[in-house]
Design a binder for these strands. Structure first.
Lengths: 173, 173
DNA sequence: CGATATTATTTTAAGTATAAAATAAATTCC
DNA sequence: GGAATTTATTTTATACTTAAAATAATATCG
């Protein structure tokens, strides 16, 4: 019903949508707008302040949370990107000396990727700053807003998982 | 095994986050997860059913909403991608015959991009199916959930705009 | 008018991303 | 044990994406 008007012109994808479009579609477009907006801010700030990229930071963050390292497949699943993508990304980070590969003893197909001391150090320098950017961008939301949003997004996540459009859907031989 | 099996362990980025992390960060990661999840579903479905890509579909959708066509800059702003990106994307769609360029009379630097009849036809075939995918993915949310989520994301969007990290921030000559 | 700045777009170089095929190692199942 | 399958990863080809530099046209201002 009563819709909050934006203060800025904001000529983006979802603002251009007609107001009587389907709610689901408008919601998806707004979600995408928010995601892109934050992502681009973080990307730009990472470049300016640390001369690095979001995928690299993301990979380091995954490894920081997994002190024993991760396999390529685990990284691929957590970062939600293709496995081939991880190969190249990891290669670049190995070259930069921030990450190392350790061949697995139990399975000669796979290797564990983990932070080098330099990688740990670099990540530790970036993460509090990164966190402050995110805090700042969300400063307009109350604690309660954030909790509610978090909860609703949890519901959405579950819904998407359950109603996925792709591949192994519907058919089960 | 029961039909009501849980939809996979979900070993993604934000599930791996510790539960006592900052709320802002968890919110951002969950937002990103939702966005990626939907995006990847749509991308895969577009390829399977229409042999096209999300950026192409997105560009066609922008043009469909703007019957008089758009300039490269307008497309860039609405799609939230770099201007150089639009150049290549539009080139490919022109080659496919879905889009045409008309040099602007008033400004020899710019051209208007618009749908060809073939482009309009292709888009009209895709959009209801696309909408049904989105509806389906959000089927787990009630009408009220969606309205609330939409409203909270509006607040978030505004907050990010107001507290942007990048470029012309803080300094103002 | 003419210098300077701004705006619209393209080009360039490098990085990121995907899907699909290829490779190779482990697992399963006669 | 060995064939067939599955799993982990890399390679390939192509598309997408960005930032920054280049180009070119328009606008501004003294």
């Amino acid at each position: 019903m009563s819709e909050l008007r934006q203060p800025a012109p904001a000529n983006d994808r979802e603002t251009a949508t007609h107001r009587d479009d389907k709610l689901e579609l408008r919601l998806w477009l707004r979600l995408l707008t928010c995601s892109n907006l934050i992502e681009q801010n973080v990307r730009g700030a990472l470049r300016l302040q640390f001369d690095t990229t979001l995928p690299r930071f993301d990979l380091l963050a995954q490894l920081d949370r997994a002190p024993d390292g991760l396999t390529m497949s685990e990284l691929s699943a957590r970062m939600m990107v293709s496995n081939g993508n991880i190969t190249g990304l990891a290669d670049r980070l190995v070259e930069e000396g921030l990450v190392k590969r350790t061949p697995s003893q139990r399975d000669r197909r796979s290797s564990h990727i983990s932070l080098t001391p330099a990688g740990k150090k670099a990540f530790d320098a970036m993460t509090p700053v990164h966190e402050s950017w995110v805090d700042r961008m969300m400063a307009g939301l109350s604690r309660q807003d954030m909790q509610q949003l978090f909860q609703l997004l949890g519901k959405l996540k579950q819904s998407v998982h359950q109603n996925a459009v792709d591949a192994d859907q519907g058919e089960k031989k």
